[in-house]
Design a protein around this nucleic acid. Structure first.
Length: 377
RNA sequence: UAGGGCGUGGCCAAGUGGUAAGGCAUCAGUUUUUGGUACUGACAUUCGGGGGUUCGAAUCCCUCCGCCCUAG
């Protein structure tokens, strides 16, 4: 009997092709639309109904069952509230990391398993490796014997390095990975994904790529925060010589490395290098070599390792922002055992990298394998 | 008030007789499942106001206005 897979159908091409591929491979596939957000905001109509229709249409085309999981309450609590609280604290959170950790690979996974699924699948550009244990995920079920978390799964980068999304997935657990399929990770390019969709006649073949979070992008994070938190106290913008060069409309709206949005002109561009939430001050610089903009060491907390903690002193590659280049690094303990979530760790980088930002994640790679990472302090 | 300097788009800033460089900001796109970065495009019929000289001025002259520095 074929293994049951619940595919998260977002209404986009990637998840559509994911479902199609699994059908081709002989799985017993069910499509699920996760309703995480449906609220309209000023000047923006949430596209969830359209996405839902697109997802359903694909399910019909593929001849698979289709379900709706309503996670709005949990998404609000785990992702949106977290995001807003982080911004209020002066940090720059990454909601998509939290969405994957809490919603897609926890809530969705658990709900699907409870529904009778053997696996879940998503349209992520990433790969799940099964090389550390018994193989799971073959359609006939012959290899995966233990129905629950039997295998040692690893998170591997996508074949298409340009589109790789493992940066958003490093907080997923090994158990969740062992129950996950990400066939899109094998594609060498987005064009091939679209070509496959077109070949199968999927209605989403030419649909434009969407944002990770529906209200960010169309509305913009600043407007969203204004909507959530209201107007913020204005404060000074101070340059590298401590001279006041302008006024900001709320320090929480700015992030390290940011250039636009300051409305301060004259000479060279200004980049944000720091925020003092107590003074409500935003520090900027026109000096691209400013030492506050470049660092070769950082501290991370809220550590999460997918399979096992990294080896101290070993050279890994690190990424501190999505799509940022990888930098070689070594990891050291700051205090406590490295494999606990309470510990902090220090990363020594071989090269200085720009705009290391509290709240963002530092993800460690060992070649193509994602080791894990933490939140920048 | 004398002596000197200055006033070019939101901000810097070229241009001193030949018909308004450039940068920043801003706006619009592109790239991007966060934020940001980067890239592309748009952006002064006009040079503090008024008058004059000239075929022609932001550039020369006169005058008014506003700044800055030095003079007790």
């Amino acid at each position: 009997m074929a293994k049951k897979v619940y595919v998260g159908l977002s209404g986009g091409v990637d998840s559509s092709v994911t479902a199609a591929l699994l059908v081709e491979q002989g799985y017993d596939v069910t499509g699920v639309y996760m309703k995480n957000w449906s609220k309209d905001l000023p000047g923006f109509d949430c596209p969830w109904k359209q996405d839902y229709q697109d997802a359903k249409r694909v399910a019909v085309q593929l001849g698979i069952p289709f379900k709706l999981y309503d996670f709005e309450t949990e998404y609000r609590a785990k992702v949106v509230d977290y995001m807003v609280a982080e911004y209020q604290a002066g940090r720059t959170p990454n909601p998509d990391v939290m969405c994957n950790q809490e919603v897609k690979f926890k809530l969705f996974l658990d709900t699907a398993l409870a529904d009778g699924a053997d696996f879940i699948a998503t349209g992520h550009y990433a790969r799940v490796g099964r090389d550390l244990g018994r193989e799971v995920g073959s359609p006939d079920g012959a290899i995966a014997r233990d129905p629950h978390y039997s295998s040692r799964a690893t998170l591997m980068t996508a074949a298409n390095a340009e589109k790789d999304q493992t940066y958003f997935l490093y907080r997923v657990t090994e158990e969740a990975l062992s129950r996950s399929l990400m066939p899109i990770g094998e594609f060498a390019s987005k064009a091939e994904v679209r070509a496959k969709a077109a070949e199968l006649g999927l209605s989403t073949a030419a649909k434009k790529d969407s944002q990770g979070i529906c209200f960010v992008g169309k509305v913009g994070i600043k407007d969203f925060l204004l909507h959530e938190l209201g107007q913020q106290p204005h404060g000074r913008i101070v340059d590298q010589n401590r001279a006041t060069v302008g006024e900001h409309d709320g320090a929480i709206f700015y992030t390290i490395g940011q250039r636009h949005g300051l409305s301060v002109g004259g000479g060279l561009p200004y980049y944000v290098v720091g925020k003092d939430m107590a003074k409500n001050e935003v520090s900027v610089t026109t000096d691209l070599q400013d030492t506050r903009l470049w660092r070769n060491q950082l501290t991370i907390t809220d550590l999460h390792w997918i399979n096992q903690a990294p080896e101290l002193g070993k050279t890994y590659q690190a990424r501190t922002r999505y799509r940022a280049p990888l930098v070689e690094c070594q990891i050291y303990l700051e205090d406590g055992p490295i494999d606990t979530n309470l510990a902090r760790a220090t990363l020594d980088l071989t090269d200085e990298i720009r705009a290391i930002t509290p709240g963002q994640s530092a993800v460690l790679y060992d070649g193509n394998r994602v080791v894990g990472g933490g939140i920048v302090v």
